[in-house]
Amino acid sequence: MPAEPSRTRPTALAVWLVLAGAIGWWAAFSLTMERFHLLMNPGATASCDFSPLVQCTANLESWQGKVFGFPNPILGLAGWVAPIVVGMAILAGARFARWFWWAFTLGITFAFGFVVWLISQSIFVLGTLCPWCMVTWAVTIPTFYAVWLHVLRTGIVPSPSALRRGAGTLMSWVPLLAVVSYAIIAVLAQVRLDVLGALF
């Protein structure tokens, strides 16, 4: 299979993947430990329960918190290893085949879709904001943008030259895209849950 078309090592992307992977893994680990705490101490509350609005317990104990039959954080413990490994490999000089980038991008896309669904469930169904979940959201969203723009700009995903140039330009705008996404989530949470009123 053909290797990645770009001759330039995506160092900034690699650094972000390592950073995002480490943060996401720590959030998943923390949530897993909270789940163990709740299982071993029935009736207890998680240490990240700050109010009826900002808490982890409701999310962890809901069916949404174990969609696949086990706690969602376990997905994070396994899944966040991939960006760390890919990022470190790029920094070490590795070049991946096109099929590998496709598989990695599909994995990131699944993570993004799952996070979007979890955000909707938290805001519109559970009515809570889980702190460690929000950390996961915060790193998944820009990772999705960065990986997709990379595979588009390098031609890993076949696309017209204009789209490749546009993706290359947008790569430097990933932080802004992420901030806009956070703002949309914040507005939805405020409209639905009156976050400011609950906190102040």
Rank of each mutant, 00 (worst) to 15 (best):
S120E: 10
V115A: 12
W117Y: 10
S120W: 07
F144K: 02
F124R: 06
R35G: 12
G65N: 04
S122D: 12
L53T: 02
A92D: 15
I90Y: 13
V115W: 01
I23P: 01
W99K: 08
F104K: 03
H37A: 15
I23K: 06
G43R: 07
G43K: 10
F50T: 11
T140I: 12
F96P: 02
P83I: 04
A138W: 05
A146T: 02
T143F: 04
P71N: 13
T32A: 12
G127W: 10
V67S: 08
T109R: 06
C48W: 04
Q55N: 08
I90G: 02
P71S: 14
A92L: 15
Q121D: 15
F29M: 12
M40H: 08
V116F: 04
N41W: 10
G87C: 07
L126F: 07
W132L: 15
A111W: 01
Q121K: 10
G127V: 14
W102N: 07
L75Q: 03
W137L: 15
G113C: 06
I74W: 13
W101F: 05
L126D: 02
S30F: 03
L60R: 00
H37P: 02
G113E: 04
T136A: 09
P142F: 12
M134P: 00
Q121H: 05
Q55T: 03
P83N: 13
G79N: 03
V135S: 02
A44T: 06
F36M: 13
T128H: 14
G79R: 06
G107F: 13
L31E: 08
G79S: 04
V125Q: 11
L77A: 04
V147K: 00
V85S: 05
I119G: 05
W102P: 08
F70M: 09
T109E: 10
M88D: 02
V125D: 14
F144G: 01
S122G: 11
S120I: 03
L118Q: 06
W80M: 12
C130M: 07
L39C: 13
C130D: 13
F29V: 09
T45P: 00
N59G: 12
L75T: 14
M88R: 12
G65K: 01
T32S: 08
C133G: 09
A46Y: 02
A27W: 00
F114G: 05
A89C: 12
A27C: 11
G93L: 06
F124G: 07
G93Y: 11
G24H: 07
T57W: 00
F29N: 08
T136G: 09
H150A: 03
T128S: 10
G107R: 06
Q121I: 14
P42D: 04
V139C: 00
W148Q: 07
W80R: 01
W148K: 01
C133T: 06
V54Q: 03
V125P: 02
M88A: 14
V135P: 01
Y145R: 01
I123H: 00
A46R: 01
S120F: 09
